[in-house]
Design a binder for these strands. Structure first.
Lengths: 125, 125
DNA sequence: CAGATATGTGACCATTTGGTCACATGATAA
DNA sequence: TTATCATGTGACCAAATGGTCACATATCTG
């Protein structure tokens, strides 16, 4: 009976260095961080301003900003004691170009099959 | 001294029901799952076939597939004892249309500022 | 039917993650 | 210059996450 067990000794996630792309995906995966980016899309905000949009504390927002900055999605402009957070659209565009756009080109026959599968699934509910 | 503490009693994430969009973002945030989708983009694969691309065990791959299915990114076609996993491009396209595309339209003056900030940051490294 | 194949489930575990706070520092305004 | 404001850091905590395995079921194939 084959059950596909691990051959190497390993347990849990080995915490790899994380690629640049992965940092971006990871940063985008959290709804609070996406909300921050939504605000920054309108105009730059200081950290304090951003905090007003959230239930959680300033510290949580700062952690989010740190992740967003590490991913290159947010650029920081220090002015006096204030920190202005600007959005950087480039990483998002890269993600789109390199990973999302290729998914738009599927042959018509496959799309038809997919559509049928989706309909079959909906009927089951 | 203002430090912005929590007003309501709360600790840790309250585990909300997660919106449909969030399921998709969450599913896309893991590199193994993106790799699965890369394979499925070429052609449908059975679960066993997919396992060959990964170091981790079949169980991990199955968990990933379950998440991808819950997010609507993978549609399952059962054929005998085999399970064919098909990619569904629709959720990705929705994410793009509703969230990513809007980031492409930033006014030129803001883009220029952002470019300068990015350059200043590069020099610091 | 009997064994091999392909997938599914629940329990369990270590790490990561998102969150809190006490405490600290640098800039501003009265 | 002194109190206030805006931001930063490290420690800590509970929950989510990604992973493993023992065990189970259903489907071929000889």
């Amino acid at each position: 009976m084959i059950t596909n067990h691990a051959s190497e000794s390993s347990s849990g996630a080995p915490s790899r260095p994380r690629s640049a792309d992965d940092l971006v995906w990871r940063a985008l995966s959290d709804p609070s961080r996406r909300l921050i980016l939504d605000r920054l899309r309108e105009r730059p905000h200081t950290t304090g301003e951003l905090c007003r949009y959230f239930e959680s504390t300033r510290f949580a927002v700062m952690k989010h900003l740190k992740l967003l900055e590490a991913a290159g999605l947010v650029l920081v402009e220090r002015r006096g004691r204030e920190r202005f957070n600007h959005i950087n659209p480039v990483p998002i565009q890269e993600i789109y170009r390199r990973w999302i756009r290729p998914f738009e080109a599927l042959p018509a026959d496959r799309l038809l099959r997919i559509k049928r599968l989706a309909e079959a699934r909906e009927e089951k509910e």
